[in-house]
Simulated scan of single mutants.
Amino acid sequence: MNHDPPIRREWRKSTRSGSNPSCVEVSHLSDSVAVRDSKSPYSGNISFTQQAFEAFLRFIKDE
């Protein structure tokens, strides 16, 4: 987990989350995807390769 101060990036949350404050936000970087807790954006984030994140999305969409 990355605990560095947040870098200025554009974060977004799923449109399916609506007004629910309990969700995660993602930020697409040049070679990875960062994920953080929307309730605690300064507590760190975790990064995945683009390939790993795409595989994760395929998996959850199939469920």
Rank of each mutant, 00 (worst) to 15 (best):
F56P: 02
S40R: 13
E10Q: 11
N20C: 11
G18N: 03
W11G: 00
S43T: 11
P41A: 04
Q50W: 03
H3W: 06
R8W: 06
R8P: 12
E63W: 09
F48V: 07
M1T: 12
G18A: 05
D4Q: 14
P6R: 11
S27Y: 02
S38R: 02
T49M: 03
N20I: 07
N2E: 15
L57A: 13
D37T: 07
I60K: 01
L29V: 06
H3P: 07
P21D: 09
N20P: 04
L57K: 12
P21R: 03
C23Q: 07
P5W: 03
S27R: 02
R36Y: 09
D62G: 15
E10Y: 08
R8I: 10
N20M: 08
F53G: 00
T15V: 11
Y42I: 03
R12Y: 01
R12S: 12
S40E: 10
S14E: 04
T15S: 15
P6M: 14
F59N: 08
S40D: 10
L57E: 10
S38Q: 06
D62Y: 07
F53L: 07
N45H: 15
D37H: 10
F59R: 10
F53K: 01
A34G: 09
S19N: 13
V33K: 01
P21F: 09
P41L: 05
P21S: 04
T15A: 13
S14P: 02
F56K: 03
S43F: 10
I46Q: 06
V24K: 02
I46R: 08
S47A: 15
W11S: 00
F59K: 04
F48C: 04
V33A: 01
S30M: 06
R9V: 01
T15W: 03
K61N: 12
E63Q: 14
S22V: 13
S32G: 12
V26D: 00
R12A: 10
S30I: 06
E54W: 05
H28F: 10
Q51Y: 02
S19Q: 07
S30V: 10
C23G: 05
W11D: 00
W11K: 00
S32E: 14
L29E: 15
P41Q: 05
P5D: 07
V26C: 08
D37S: 06
D31T: 14
D4W: 05
E63L: 14
Q50F: 05
Y42G: 13
E10P: 00
N45G: 03
F59M: 03
K39A: 13
K13C: 08
G44A: 11
E10A: 11
A52S: 15
F53P: 00
D4T: 14
F56Y: 14
E25Q: 15
R12N: 02
Q50A: 11
E25G: 04
E25L: 06
Q50D: 10
C23L: 09
I60R: 08
F48Q: 04
F53C: 01
A52R: 12
D37A: 07
K61R: 15
F59G: 08
E54N: 13
S47I: 03
